[in-house]
């Protein structure tokens, strides 16, 4: 390798050089020290390259000695326990038949128990779900909710949400209930709240009770009734603001409250929940704010009412509507 002609970037890309920087050995120390002695004009480049490489440093979780010894013990125990091989072919055939029947049966039960239950709603469809633990979830349109198996017997109740849902959690002797989204985990004891994971952000709106919100890179926060928390990769840290919670869950009654929300927020909501694309020829309208309530029971009526309020012509297209 002709290191004498190397530039910073080339050093940074050279595997041998990287190895020397991140875990020097006697051998590599010797090689690079004598190289620098021979080519003192390269020392600046080498030094910058070293700094560059060291910048690629990740946070790492250090397992404790306990973690490691326990795991080792577990592995060695499982290795030492002899596996009994049953020579079923040497036994009466009914044994084998019985075993196979039992296996198939118990495997079936196992699958039946383990299979995570999953609910999915189509555009425009709202579904009310009673969970095994007594909690009630209203799943908004175009959303998915997955349940952990054995919700009733576990020490922790867990669900996974993609989309939007309203949770009314049953209290269960202090057993936690956790809603996982891509951006956050909502931990509760018994309460009512709304979670939405649209547009690469998770919004939690708390109606009553207490909720603890966990994210990967911030301290967990405790929410009070009326709080709306927004978590996204782009906006850090967690945004907290007081809102009127009722306005955010009226989707359950197919009504949209326009108060204090821009037209562009409403347009996004229509696309997320109904799959209807609304375009505006005049983009200035998008930042306009309206007040009032509109029924969403019929999409055509909703669009017509909106066009009357905004005082613009509307045209139906293949995919949705265009406001002129």
């Amino acid at each position: 390798m002709d290191y004498a002609s190397f530039k910073v970037e080339e050093f940074c890309k050279d595997t041998d050089f990287i190895h020397w920087v991140i875990s020097p050995t006697e051998e590599s120390n010797q090689f690079w020290n004598s190289f620098i002695a021979l080519h003192p004009n390269k020392s600046k480049e080498i030094n910058i390259a070293t700094e560059y490489i060291k910048t690629f440093h990740f946070q790492e979780f250090e397992p404790t000695i306990n973690d490691l010894t326990n795991l080792k013990k577990r592995i060695l125990e499982d290795i030492d326990s002899p596996i009994v091989v049953v020579n079923w072919w040497s036994r009466p055939a009914y044994w084998a038949t019985a075993a196979v029947v039992l296996m198939v049966f118990s495997f079936g039960i196992f699958l039946w128990n383990q299979k995570p239950t999953s609910y999915q709603t189509a555009y425009g469809e709202v579904q009310k779900i009673s969970l095994p633990d007594g909690s009630i979830v209203t799943l908004n349109a175009n959303s998915t909710l997955k349940l952990a198996p054995n919700m009733k017997n576990e020490a922790m109740r867990e669900v996974w949400l993609d989309g939007e849902a309203y949770f009314d959690i049953a209290k269960l002797n202090g057993v936690k209930f956790i809603v996982h989204t891509r951006e956050a985990q909502v931990e509760v004891l018994g309460t009512e709240f709304n979670v939405s994971t649209r547009r690469k952000q998770t919004k939690v709106i708390l109606h009553e009770g207490k909720v603890k919100l966990h994210t990967s890179n911030a301290q967990p926060i405790l929410m009070k009734p009326g709080d709306m928390a927004t978590v996204s990769e782009k906006i850090q840290p967690i945004q907290l603001k007081m809102v009127q919670p009722d306005q955010y869950d009226v989707w359950r009654e197919s009504v949209v409250v326009l108060d204090d929300r821009t037209i562009s927020e409403i347009v996004e909501m229509m696309e997320d929940t109904y799959g209807i694309v609304i375009q505006f020829e005049n983009p200035r309208l998008l930042s306009k704010k309206l007040t009032g309530k509109l029924s969403l029971k019929s999409t055509d009526d909703f669009i017509e009412n909106l066009s009357i309020i905004l005082d613009v012509e509307v045209e139906k297209t293949e995919k949705g509507y265009v406001f002129k």
């Binding site: 440093h57 990740f58 997955k146 996974w160 891509r182």
Partner: peptide
């Protein structure tokens, strides 16, 4: 079968 594994893997690792 929670989410696609691709969405989950290496999702929380951060440079520091």
């Amino acid at each position: 079968n929670k989410f696609d594994s691709d969405d989950y893997v290496f999702d929380n690792a951060e440079f520091m």
